[in-house]
Design a protein around this nucleic acid. Structure first.
Length: 423
RNA sequence: GGGUGGGUGGCAGAGUGGUUGAAUGCACCGGUCUUGAAAACCGGCGGGCGUGUAAGCGUCUCGGGGGUUCGAAUCCCUCCCCACCCGCCA
């Protein structure tokens, strides 16, 4: 959420950021609306001031026993009252309109974000490990999983429909092991606090992180008006909503392993096979709440935490900086980590590490006291650390053997009861 | 699902129609004292909006909205939220 005062002072920058996201300029319209609002506020204040002064005089007149004078002033105030109400109503209408427009705007882009209109223009920052070469044609994860009888898409479809999966036996355990492994890593080595938080949240929470009002079709709403979280970023970030934090307590670092639920409206036909794009998937999320000056540093730290997962699992990946046209609306800068999938012969997103600046903090009204005791909005960041479902895909595909079995990487064996291979 | 009680400043907690934006305590900031710190004492201390270079001034704000009244944190209506008890269920 933007501060209209900031837009006034930075109109050009604001519009150019919108343009880079492929949207038309909005500052002129917003400023005009705010001008109208201000005019009403001033008129309203003047009318209120007059009313208050006269009301006071009534009290004085009555105290002095001058009832005639009191009544003449009362008549005067009576006339003023309706005027005050009209101003108030007009002011509220304009303020609501302005806030609604502001709430739909995407975040300002960080200057380093590369220009582009689609993922094709994302910029690769670095690559870790060369894609493994296979002496046979590597299969896709679902072929491996189905052949082993450990991934069952048909059963899932009978129970829940398409875009669900049933994992069985060691494959189910593998998913659990991956989650445990990641949580242990982040809590023991990366300074995160593990959190178990609601998966079902109020609209206000989704508004806070920016999924509402603009992206309501991407999440599932319950019959009682709550929402299934599309990511635990929502629960973790909203942990600090409507709070005034002490600067000394920052940064806060939270992590959580949760299911995530996405309607995938608009992605019909994309990634329909396998468990790459599901309505439900497990993800370890990291959220950081910090002071503005540490924000960028924390993003790089978090990116490193996510990378550490893949490094320990020895899965090839690359880090890309998302271009302006591919970035999420709430974010200022995003790095994606893409794992190599031999079966697909492609890199696919497995983590996304983003910086929101004060965009979410404003929507949640989360502030902290700085060194001078002044209130300021915190900065928030989030990143997958990492997507468990996709990590399982990457693991199965990268560690597949010609006989259809899957080797368990060293780092994960302690979480698999020492098991060295599946199948 | 049934019933009851509540939502006041960073926190706790007074306040049921008239200089109350709001007592008091804690926290916080400044100062005195101290070698330093603590304690004690003195002083300061909500937020939003508008206006102004600023100091300041104005206005709104005691969960949201509406109403009664010359005047509302205090009365009425309505919505939201929270807590507790009973029932049901994990």
């Amino acid at each position: 959420m933007f501060d209209i005062k900031w837009i006034r002072a930075n109109a050009e920058l604001f519009d150019s950021s919108l343009k880079r996201r492929g949207q038309p300029p909005a500052s002129a319209d917003l400023i005009a609306l705010d001008d109208a609002r201000k005019a009403k506020v001033t008129a309203m204040n003047e009318a209120q001031e007059k009313r208050n002064a006269l009301s006071k005089q009534i009290g004085q007149a009555k105290a002095a026993g001058d009832n005639a004078r009191a009544e003449s002033i009362m008549a005067e105030v009576g006339a003023l009252k309706s005027a005050v109400q009209e101003f108030e109503e007009a002011e509220r209408t304009l303020t609501d309109e302005l806030n609604t427009k502001l709430s739909f705007l995407p975040n300002l882009l960080h200057p380093e974000v590369p220009d582009g209109t689609s993922e094709n223009e994302n910029v690769t920052i670095r690559t870790h490990l060369e894609p493994k070469t296979f002496s046979f044609k590597p299969k896709e994860h679902y072929e491996i999983g189905e052949t082993l009888g450990l991934m069952d898409f048909e059963a899932a479809a009978r129970i829940a429909g398409s875009r669900f999966v049933v994992l069985r036996g060691q494959m189910a355990r593998l998913e659990r092991a991956l989650g445990q492994f990641m949580l242990d890593l982040h809590t023991r080595e990366h300074g995160f606090t593990e959190v178990s938080a609601p998966l079902l949240v109020r609209s206000e929470a989704l508004f806070g992180t920016g999924q509402l009002p603009k992206f309501s079709e991407e999440a599932f709403e319950t019959t009682d008006g709550r929402w299934l979280i599309p990511t635990s970023e929502v629960s973790l970030t909203n942990l600090v909503r409507e709070q005034i934090l002490s600067g000394e307590d920052l940064p806060l670092r939270f992590t959580s392993l949760t299911p995530c639920f996405r309607s995938e409206a608009g992605s019909a036909g994309r990634d329909t096979r396998g468990m790459l794009r599901q309505h439900q998937f497990a993800k370890v999320e990291m959220v950081v709440v910090t002071t503005p000056d540490r924000s960028e540093e924390e993003q790089h730290h978090m990116l490193g935490c996510a990378e550490a997962v893949l490094r320990k699992l020895e899965i090839p990946y690359r880090v890309v900086a998302l271009c302006s046209g591919d970035m999420g609306a709430s974010m200022q800068r995003t790095y994606d980590i893409e794992a190599w999938l031999p079966g697909q012969n492609a890199y696919r997103e497995i983590s996304s590490v983003s910086m929101a600046g004060d965009f979410q903090a404003r929507r949640m009204n989360t502030r902290y006291r700085n060194g001078e005791g002044k209130l300021d909005f915190v900065h928030t960041l989030n990143g997958s650390g990492i997507a468990v479902g996709r990590a399982l895909i990457a693991l199965v595909e990268n560690y597949q053997n010609e006989d259809g079995s899957v080797t368990i990487p060293e780092a994960l064996r302690p979480f698999m009861g020492g098991l060295e291979r599946i199948g």
